[in-house]
Simulated assay, not measured.
Amino acid sequence: MSLCWCCCPSDPDSAGEREPLMSPQSARQLRRPTEVMAMKDGRIAAKLVNVADLDQCFADIVDTFNHQQENYITLCESIRLLKECCQCNTLVDCFQRLQLEHCDFSIKLDMQGYNFSLSVQPKQSIPKQLQLAQQHTKQLCVSTKSIIAADPKLQEMINSVVQAEDKHLETVKLVNDSYQEQMRRLSNVKDNFMEVKRAKQLSHVYKELAHSVLKDIAELAGITV
């Protein structure tokens, strides 16, 4: 029995004197996080600079990037679980092995735009391995789409604030505060820009992996994305 791939292209949709780290609760509301994570390859955080619009801008970037980073972690885990389930080294090998080991079932990878899923027929008495493969493929699709969908908005926000970095630094300097407070704010805003630039680099890595997954799926489906 040959493996059938179907496709239908479509468009995707501190400590000491430092201020507390901030993370957004919603698009227009700030909240203090219960935990700060600033690992080299993990979440980012922003510090208060005492300029409302700028604080909100940093918070929005933090929120959008950290959501994308969560999806990246899920994507990596889905890939690992799928490879573990099929005992293969690549996604392509995974789907091909499923067909070879379950020749009594019609296994089809459906792809419509950025949506893809693994269908199995008949639906009765589906082996545990195939059920797990379906679950992992579904999560793979959700995280891949989320990473790609978040990227345009994230890059626009990052580029906008970075291009006006000097202007924002001057704005923070003009805040009516004591010298000590001003130095604290300036240190915070400089740290924020470092975090934002780190987010831009990491986001590129996340997007590259997501596109790599789509490329593998598309190759199996016989289309180009």
Rank of each mutant, 00 (worst) to 15 (best):
N159K: 14
L48F: 05
I147H: 00
H102Q: 04
K200T: 10
Q29W: 08
S160P: 03
Q112V: 12
F116G: 03
Q180H: 09
V62S: 00
V196K: 03
M183Y: 15
C7Y: 11
A52L: 10
Q112S: 10
L220A: 04
S2R: 14
S23D: 11
A149F: 06
Q121V: 14
N89G: 11
V175L: 04
S106F: 14
A59V: 01
A133M: 13
Q68R: 00
N50Q: 02
K153I: 02
R80A: 09
Q68A: 00
M1D: 05
S187L: 12
N66Q: 03
G113K: 01
R185G: 01
N50H: 09
D93K: 02
K83M: 13
H136S: 06
C141N: 12
R32V: 14
Q163W: 05
I158S: 02
N115R: 13
G113S: 11
S143C: 09
F95Y: 14
R80F: 12
C6W: 15
I223A: 03
D104Y: 07
Q68D: 00
Q99A: 06
T74I: 06
V162L: 04
Q96T: 10
V161S: 07
V142N: 11
Q201S: 13
L130Y: 08
F58W: 01
Q68G: 00
A210I: 02
